[in-house]
Write a protein that binds this DNA or RNA. Structure first.
Lengths: 157, 157
DNA sequence: GTAATTGCAAAGGATTTGCTCTGGT
DNA sequence: ACCAGAGCAAATCCTTTGCAATTAC
């Protein structure tokens, strides 16, 4: 992929440069408490007066995601949405279908259980995804318990 | 589901016409024991001698998915993959990252736990997704012949 | 006979990539 | 100065859609 001749012999030796755009993106992410798509973030930044290219936003989000600095989710429409999470360890999300508000949580027992279950089938190198969607307290009152939106996994704001 | 009966439009059901293509698609799905993308299915059908348009495959898979006759998963690359599952009730999947071999399973305790957890945060109308990926027994030891990328970047959450 | 279905091919939408220019360090 | 990073547009990829020709019923 990349044959870097000049490489600081450092593990994962990518040292991110502090550019105006990168800073702005991180700052924007810091304000979000919900998941947003790259395009939404880009548009939001522009509205806020920042001058950033869409490709740059995509590239940075990708980098940040790989670095584990942001969490990524893929909606059922195949769109990637990002969020800067407080937790740095493996965790899951409880997302409000209406406002996108997100609660992070850990589920040690689920981790254990899935691992055992998978192992019992002879599977290794196990990984998993788990997301919970619902209506947050603010959007629960008097709402229809049967949401017309089937398995919608949209986090629109 | 193959009863050739005269159904009055009562059960809110649109009556799908029995076309050569639709039949072929269903038959192909019946043979699969793993998740496949629309394009893969289409190609496979063509290789098998069937003459079907890609759009038709997409349209039918969409219809079948809505009807609950097939399960859909969205990969981390945003591609939709389909599979005709044995279980008709809510269930999850344990999928091999190499060959796609899939094991269906139920996880009542997880269902319960997530429900309680979400409720404790005041959330209602709870729904969730959970998929497990790994390497099946056959692909656990050796390397991945197609994906020289052992550690997949699963959108863990 | 009539309307649903098919089939291209063109259109869409999200994300990536080539290449040049800019700006950190 | 040097090279990672930014920008923009063209290029990809998957999926959807418009519309005439088919075909099930």
């Amino acid at each position: 992929m990349e044959t870097t001749a000049h490489e600081t012999a450092r593990t994962g030796g990518a040292r991110p440069r502090t550019t105006r755009q990168r800073t702005a993106i991180l700052e924007t992410l810091g304000r979000q408490e919900d998941f947003r798509s790259a395009q939404q973030i880009h548009e939001q930044m522009r509205s806020g007066g920042a001058s950033v290219g869409l490709a740059t936003v995509y590239r940075n989000l990708q980098t940040l995601a790989e670095a584990g600095q942001v969490d990524v989710l893929v909606t059922d429409e195949g769109e990637s949405i990002y969020r800067q999470c407080a937790a740095t360890v493996h965790h899951h999300h409880l997302v409000c279908r209406v406002c996108g508000r997100t609660v992070e949580f850990e589920a040690p027992q689920v981790e254990t259980w899935t691992r055992e279950m998978a192992a019992s089938h002879g599977f290794t190198a196990i990984e998993h995804t788990m997301e919970i969607f619902g209506l947050c307290p603010e959007h629960s009152d008097g709402e229809d318990p049967q949401n017309p939106d089937g398995a919608a996994a949209e986090a629109s704001a």
